[in-house]
Amino acid sequence: MAKYILKRIFYLFLTLFIIATLTFFLMKLLPGTPFSNQNRMSPDQLKIVKAQYGLDQSVFVQYVRYMGGLLQGNLGTSFQFNNEPVTTLIGQRLAPSMQIGAQAMILGTVLGILLGAVAAIRKNTWVDTLATFISILGLSIPSFVLAVLLQFYLAYKWHIYPVALWDNFQSSVLPTLALAALPLGNVARFMRTEMVDVMSSDYIELAKSKGNSAWKVVTKHALRNSLIPIVTIIGPMAVSVMTGSMVVENIFSIPGIGEQFVKSITTNDYPTIMGLTIFYSFLLVVIILIVDILYGFIDPRIRLGNGGKE
């Protein structure tokens, strides 16, 4: 197990290294300089500014410097936001994104488990059909469409929640709902399939025949065993929530990293784009690693030694 974890951590760093390298050279491929007002600068001024950002060096030197900085947790300096280090920018904006992301994941997963379980227990009835329909809606409707609809009805028309604001819990409700739809659909679907499988297994028959109540059979035996595989879809779900949060944060004007990312794209703030790309990838590979290891601990049937995946 320890050997496996070490191996995975090694690959994690290799992956991150390749991602950082690719991102760096992709950004260098972009034409033009980041200083859009260069016409107003004298050549001397331009030289000074370039030297300040280290852009007067050769690409290779810049690359080595950038990678060296990464090792020390330095993601470079933003062109746009008053020369703030990218790490500071991310740090300031991490909390709101994490909050709505976590809320959406928890809400989506809990509701999804309930929905999927109910659908499986009442298989082939109208309850099942309804639950399946809801999960398909959650999977299919893009989070930004949902966000705009929620904003229009719950905030603008009925004044239940603020339209676009970030201060208290109230203001996080709508973005959370918009982002929770996808995990809900995913989990409900997955849960239903798992639960249907489990419900037809021998140990459930045994539990039933021992005279346990239906409630006890479901909560003590069926639910528990169906829950384990849910762990595997946490990784992909986290990615989709991250993706969704970029535009959902924009719609609700939440000062999070997603909004920052979109803003950096429209303002060509390359260091911030690079930094956020690496940061997002880091977050993702770490989540996937943790999930894989967790899965090995939870379900001893899985032998992590043999690849661990699939």
Partner: peptide, 10 residues
């Protein structure tokens, strides 16, 4: 694995 470990959208 490397390609799939970067979020698609990014």
């Amino acid at each position: 694995e490397i390609v799939s470990s970067v979020p698609n959208l990014i």
